Simulated assay, not measured.
Amino acid sequence: MEGQDFISIVQLCNHYKVEVSFFQQLEEEGLVEITTIEQTKCLHQNLINDVEKMIRIHQELNINIEGIDVVFNLLKKMNALQSKMNSLQNRLSLYEPNSY
């Protein structure tokens, strides 16, 4: 793990105007993984898009952490179903090329 791939929780809190406890709650719920690098709690940069969505859901829709967990689980299921549907449509197009 390289330190340059991680962003400090404190920096994220300052940037997004949220409390450190928000990230702690996200970690407790299993929505993010906080890594400690040289005594600094950090998030991997790959999580930033999801964290931004979580913050917007929390602030704009006033949804609590448990609600965010439900929303993200539903989004995962929806994406999996969409992927499966695309795969099935591709297979079907082999047998019925003009159906779409």
Rank of each mutant, 00 (worst) to 15 (best):
V18G: 02
E28T: 07
Y16M: 06
F6C: 11
Q59W: 07
H58E: 01
D5S: 07
E96A: 05
Q59H: 09
I63K: 00
N46K: 15
A80S: 07
E52R: 00
H15S: 12
I65M: 01
D50T: 05
F23H: 05
F72W: 03
E52F: 02
N98V: 05
N49T: 08
R91G: 10
Q4A: 13
E2A: 09
L43K: 02
I63N: 00
I63Y: 00
V70T: 05
L75W: 07
L26N: 03
F22P: 01
K53Q: 07
Y100L: 11
L12A: 05
N14T: 11
I7D: 04
Q89C: 15
I55P: 05
I63L: 01
N46L: 15
R91A: 13
V71L: 04
N90D: 08
I7G: 00
Q11S: 14
T35H: 09
Q89R: 15
L94A: 04
E33F: 06
V32Q: 11
K76E: 11
Q11K: 15
R56P: 02
Q11A: 12
L12P: 04
T36D: 09
E29W: 00
N90S: 14
C13H: 00
G67Y: 01
L47Q: 12
E60S: 08
F6E: 14
E38S: 12
G67R: 01
N64F: 05
L43C: 04
I65G: 10
L88N: 09
V10Q: 03
I55D: 00
D50F: 10
V51S: 07
E33W: 03
Q89H: 12
Q24S: 11
E27V: 04
E96P: 12
N79I: 09
D5F: 02
I63A: 00
V51G: 02
M1I: 15
Q59C: 03
K84I: 12
E28Q: 14
L94P: 03
N86T: 11
S99N: 13
G67W: 05
N64P: 08
N79G: 07
N90C: 14
I55F: 06
Q24F: 08
V71D: 04
I65K: 02
C42H: 02
S83K: 10
S8E: 13
Y100P: 15
Q45V: 15
F23L: 12
I37V: 02
K77A: 10
L94E: 05
R91I: 02
I63D: 07
L43T: 04
S93N: 06
T35N: 13
V10S: 06
E33L: 05
I7M: 02
Q39S: 14
M1C: 12
L43A: 06
N14H: 14
N62Q: 14
Y16W: 15
N49D: 14
V20M: 09
L92I: 01
F72M: 08
